[in-house]
């Protein structure tokens, strides 16, 4: 820790240079961040403000700006009496279940792959493939696999002797669970990779001393692995929740909210309201509620992190 005189001198010199440069830094600093900041202002910040303003209006963007009517919080109160919106919101809440299921499966896979398996990186690639593939392609493939009458899944079930296999995406009760199965399938690779990185950072000697104490596999998992990856679990839980609120592609391609809105979600209802029914104001209030939910989860992250995470 002893600093030599030469090093201290060098540091003092460097600090002087830093001070002298500061004025020059001001200008070049703005030049460096300028393009990104300009882009974000035009494409994100201004739209956010416009969206907030429009959420208090009754307006359609094909009508022209002079037709704007301010209606206060009417859009928001309408939303809570809008059956389709409430169903979509409920479906979004059900979709949250995807995340813990995904995390349990991927943690188990990660532990097995990390410690007990040959060809580690081969497995990483295999499980990650769905995540790399486009959701549009995946959705189309699953549509065929789960086809009610010809799909391989139902043909297989029939061959096993199941008389009336579920008609999956066409059935009001099975459609949302089918979507959830696909979402779990797609997302496992991501959590798996993050978990494997977390497992690698657990000190080996913890396990060694547990071995000396005669701890079994299960005890080692519950007493060492699980607590030590809890920050990762928490991170994956929060980002997972946020991303389920943003799922749109899979619904649009797979079901378009059908049958009978049983798979509609907020983003999809927002899309149809804005671009098919052309109710700009109403769609904007939905957009802000969506933003609100995401913010709520983010706040939960900020406060919850200290409480529930064991470092």
């Amino acid at each position: 820790m002893n600093k030599t005189l030469a090093e201290t001198g060098k540091q003092a010199q460097a600090a002087a240079v830093r001070r002298k440069r500061r004025r020059g830094d001001n200008l070049s600093g703005y030049l460096f961040i300028g393009p990104m900041l300009l882009g974000l202002t035009v494409l994100t910040i201004i739209p956010t403000i416009i969206s907030l303003i429009l959420s208090f209006t009754d307006w359609s963007f094909i009508a022209g700006l002079d037709k704007i009517k301010f209606t206060g919080i009417k859009n928001y109160s309408l939303l809570f009496h809008d059956r389709v919106f409430l169903i979509s919101l409920k479906n979004n809440l059900v979709l949250l279940l995807v995340v813990p299921i995904q995390l349990i499966i991927s943690l188990v896979l990660a532990v097995v792959i990390d410690k007990l398996v040959y060809f580690k990186s081969f497995f990483k690639v295999i499980f990650f493939m769905p995540y790399i593939s486009s959701i549009v392609a995946v959705a189309i493939v699953f549509q065929l696999l789960f086809h009610p009458s010809y799909g391989p899944v139902n043909q297989f079930l029939k061959a096993l002797g199941v008389k009336n296999p579920p008609i999956w995406l066409a059935d009001v009760h099975y459609a949302l669970p089918s979507v959830m199965i696909i979402m779990v399938w797609v997302g496992i690779g991501f959590s798996l990779i993050v978990y494997m990185a977390a497992l690698q950072s657990i000190p080996k000697d913890l396990y060694e001393s547990a071995d000396i104490d005669g701890a079994g596999t299960w005890t080692r998992f519950t007493k060492i692995t699980f607590p030590l990856v809890s920050p990762t679990t928490f991170f994956l839980l929060v980002t997972g929740f946020i991303s389920t609120f943003k799922s749109f592609d899979i619904i649009k391609v797979l079901t378009e909210g059908r049958p009978a809105y049983s798979t509609s979600v907020i983003t999809y209802y927002l899309y149809t309201t804005a671009f098919e029914n052309l109710k700009t104001g109403y769609a904007s209030s939905m957009a802000w509620l969506l933003f609100g939910f995401v913010m709520l989860i983010t706040l939960f992250q900020l406060y919850g992190q200290k409480k529930w995470v064991n470092y």
């Binding site: 974000l40 739209p47 416009i50 969206s51 963007f61 609120f245 769609a283 957009a287 983010t298």
Partner: peptide, 18 residues
């Protein structure tokens, strides 16, 4: 800006692009 879900701003983005 990172916290704003992209679907919350597609409508104004669409208008600005027009």
């Amino acid at each position: 800006t990172f916290m704003i879900p992209s679907y919350s701003i597609i409508v104004p983005q669409f208008m600005i692009f027009k």
